[in-house]
């Protein structure tokens, strides 16, 4: 391994790099199927994509609970999204969402009881869960009737859902942002570094 050898590789390196730059017409995309799901009111929203602007269209969605019981089956739309009614489950049960993305590809997202809004005090409807989640902090004025209290709780629940919708969408986008530049450069560093390590070790053995 003399200096000349490195000089020739120095010539080769920029060309290999340029090759990658020239044949990359779009930003680099992940090949990994990203799945993200969240509760939106009475629905669960699933989003599946291979990376930015590359939704997993017509991806087969299978929803099961922790014991593997089939809860729902469907397909994603042209935006890689699917809405389905939130299943009624015991408070501690989880929901596993598996999305297929063509031959040999699939992504999985598991929703914990907390993601589903099923804490220990959880009840049947999201309206009630909002009401019971903060019973001491915001007690309803005694002058309101039971019906009015329910109506108020529903309004608050809907307003909160509307407000946090963009946040959930943002999280979904972050989930599918693909490999970072740090990871790419890090990986190349590992490979070259490993090569260097083995070369150093074998040259020491030679001596």
């Amino acid at each position: 391994m003399n200096i000349c050898r490195f000089l020739t590789w120095n010539k080769l390196f920029p060309v290999i790099l340029l090759l990658f730059v020239f044949i990359t017409p779009a930003p680099v995309f992940a090949h990994h199927l990203y799945v993200f799901a969240y509760v939106n009111g009475r629905d669960i929203v699933v989003k599946a994509a291979f990376g930015h602007d590359r939704p997993d269209k017509n991806g087969k969605v299978t929803v099961t609970n922790s014991t593997g019981k089939l809860l729902f089956q469907g397909k994603t739309d042209s935006r890689g999204m699917l809405h389905f009614p939130r299943p009624q489950l015991p408070p501690n049960d989880t929901v596993k969402i598996t999305v297929g993305g063509g031959p040999g590809h699939q992504g999985v997202w598991t929703m914990t009881p907390a993601d589903l809004g099923n804490n220990t005090a959880a009840t049947e409807t999201p309206t009630d869960s909002v009401h019971t989640a903060q019973p001491n902090n915001s007690p309803a004025p005694p002058s309101l009737s039971a019906n009015e209290q329910r109506y108020l709780a529903r309004l608050v629940s809907e307003a909160v859902a509307r407000e946090i919708e963009p946040l959930k969408a943002m999280m979904a986008r972050q989930m599918e942002s693909g490999p970072s530049l740090q990871n790419i450069i890090g990986g190349i560093g590992w490979l070259v570094g490993l090569g260097g390590l083995v070369a150093a070790w074998s040259s020491r053995k030679k001596r």
Binding site: W9, I16, I23, V28, H31, L191, V192, G195
Partner: peptide
């Protein structure tokens, strides 16, 4: 061969990066 470890690791790096190079072809990619 001990003299070609660096070449091996560089080609391994090329393979590592190649999967990130995405080319739209026809309806798919």
């Amino acid at each position: 061969d001990t003299d070609h470890i660096i070449e091996t690791s560089l080609l391994s790096s090329a393979f590592f990066v190649a999967s990130l190079v995405h080319i739209p072809l026809g309806p798919g990619s």
